[in-house]
Amino acid sequence: MNADTPHWVPPLRSDVIELLTPGKNPFYEHADVQLFLAWRDGRAVGRISAHIDHLALEQPVEQGMGPGTGNWGMMEAEDAAVMAAVIAAAEDWLRGRGMTRALAPLSLSVWDEPGLLTKGHDHSPMIMMGHHRAEYEGWIAACGYCETKQLHTFIVPVHEGFPKLINRIVASGERNERIRIRPVDMGRFDEEATLILSILNQAWSRNWGFVPITDSEVRYIKTKLKPVLYPEINLIAEYDGKPAAFMLCLPDVNEALKDMNGSLLPFGWARLLWKLKRRKWTAGRVPLMGVLPEHQNSRLASQLAFMMIEHIRRWGVEEMGVDRAEVGWILDDNQGMVAIADAIEGEVNRVYSIYDKAL
């Protein structure tokens, strides 16, 4: 269904199987999931997942989730009729389990690939971001769904550096003995990753769509991210000797995956490992950052963010040869993060929409 979509990057089949397998993906420890396939004339023409995340049900309604909220995602469809059929199947399954609302698409969790691509079809997604056919937007709307939230990614200039004001803020921070920006210590990787995800849970706890990351998911994420982490661009900011914030940056592994057709065999592993070892990538993505609640909404928070972004920019350009960088996703109404993206002259390059419907 995506063979004629030039900018779609086939995900690794092994990763998709792991994502959908109970016992491998810890999402299943707190969620009920049902997978559906649509068939026509003996041929698969669509798919969808329906799921109820019990941790999401416990979140405040004003933060987007809450009681009665079910989800669907992983949708693909050959045409509008198939899309309507698979969505109806997901809705019936959710309704039959007492859900009164569908918030979608989430594939599977808000921490995986949330939203439907509604802007940015003219270029390939970076690592850990989805890509969908442009027709899907109209097909989903025709099923009675209304947009409730947008997630934005920002393309950021890297070669020429940031505006003078940002450079002054960074320089001031670098002179401040109370601030230390340090790389992740790979010799203590488990401890460092646990620290980062702890900050993430605290920093994002009041954000729209937040669902806490469990201890099992922390262990799972550590295993998945370690092979693609370069410590020099994955940073922890300390203030008065205590962790205050973090920022993660990943090379755009999709550069290597795009031509593998979803398989690491027979030579995909070698190609990917060669790319990782050479540390030469044309693009990178900052998927996550977080500042502890006690520092949020302060001048320190933005200063730490600018310092980490500049550190990543320098190293990415000088050591990795990066010529494109992406920041996000960022909630469209997250004023603090949008202001930071604007200050470093970021421009929205992709929009992902999340939809809502009463069941």
Rank of each mutant, 00 (worst) to 15 (best):
V86Q: 06
W93S: 02
M99E: 04
A104G: 08
G96T: 01
L94T: 00
A81I: 02
M83F: 07
G98L: 04
P105Y: 12
M83I: 02
R101P: 00
E91S: 09
A81C: 08
V82E: 14
G98A: 04
R101H: 14
G98H: 10
A85M: 11
P105G: 01
A80N: 04
R97I: 06
R97D: 08
R101N: 07
S109R: 08
A84L: 05
E91W: 05
V110M: 10
D92Y: 00
M83C: 15
A81R: 15
G98P: 07
L106A: 07
I87M: 07
S109P: 07
P105E: 12
L106P: 00
D79Y: 10
A88L: 10
V86R: 05
M99V: 00
W93R: 09
V86N: 09
L94A: 06
M99F: 06
L94M: 05
P105V: 05
V110G: 02
S107C: 11
R101I: 01
R97W: 14
W93Q: 08
I87Y: 03
L103Y: 07
R97P: 04
A85T: 12
M99Q: 12
A80V: 07
I87N: 01
W93C: 07
A90P: 04
A89Y: 14
M99S: 01
D79N: 15
R97N: 12
A90C: 14
A81E: 15
M99D: 11
R101F: 11
A84T: 13
L108F: 07
W93Y: 12
R97Q: 13
D79S: 12
L108D: 06
L106S: 03
R101A: 03
V82Y: 13
L103A: 08
A81Y: 14
I87L: 11
S107L: 09
L106F: 14
L108E: 02
G98Q: 04
R97Y: 13
L106H: 05
L108K: 08
M99A: 02
D92I: 00
A88M: 08
D92W: 03
A102I: 02
A80M: 09
G96E: 04
G98Y: 01
